[in-house]
Design a protein around this nucleic acid. Sequence first.
DNA 1: CTAGACCTTGCCACCGACGTCAAGGCAAGG
DNA 2: CCTTGCCTTGACGTCGGTGGCAAGGTCTAG
Lengths: 127, 127
Amino acid sequence: MLIGELAEAAGTSARALRYYETHGLLRAGRSANGYRVYDDAELRVVREIRALLAVGFGLDDIRPFVDCLRAGHPSGDVCPDSVAVLRRKIAEVDAGIARMRDVRETLVGQLNLAIQSRETACFSKTC
Amino acid sequence: MLIGELAEAAGTSARALRYYETHGLLRAGRSANGYRVYDDAELRVVREIRALLAVGFGLDDIRPFVDCLRAGHPSGDVCPDSVAVLRRKIAEVDAGIARMRDVRETLVGQLNLAIQSRETACFSKTC
DNA sequence: CTAGACCTTGCCACCGACGTCAAGGCAAGG
DNA sequence: CCTTGCCTTGACGTCGGTGGCAAGGTCTAG
């Protein structure tokens, strides 16, 4: 499988695949003419990468999952390192949600004050 | 007030203040030697900018608030444009929270499956 | 006179996952 | 032979809010 075919099959770009490779996530053999040649198993790897990227993982966080798949496990999630990353990410997401809730409260408070002072102004000035 | 003093008073850097100026948020007069000279009222403006940046606003979103303050209002929140931005930002934050909740659910599901299959493996293999 | 503490403009570096362009090699069909 | 379409590496641009540095002018105290 050549890079364009793999990209097509995985719904991404050849550029992205080369990028994953430079970051140690993808592996490719080379044909006589220097083209990257991919094992069929790499499609699963690329799908794993895309799925994790889509939920906000960085490439470094994804590496354990890829390694886990490469180790022969049917899922990239089952290895200890992957589980650790999952737990950490869940905690990060929780923290993010909490922060956004605080921000939301701040903004709603600000909005209510603004509306209130506009009403007060309109009441006194009959605007 | 010179730029260093204003930066100190607002708890930020002179570099940041110049950046805000290039983006139309801050105004400064110039003294004979070319130094920026700030009105005392600019301190309020800088504080408004910092407060909004801290809750995740971009500089473009902040502009209406600054204009509102400059128009003489005691708060930057009360002008229609500011209220509109506040509403939009609250909606964005709500969307962000919803997205992160989805991500959280996905990750928790993945984690549970991983733990489950590890337990199954351990059960069968007595690992 | 000089040191040092301000100020000025301007430009590079950063983060991350690529997009995009450049310049060239390789394969296959008319 | 020529075109078309794939592949290669390399390098720069993106987005936003700075940090840091350079090279220079200015002000103040000793």
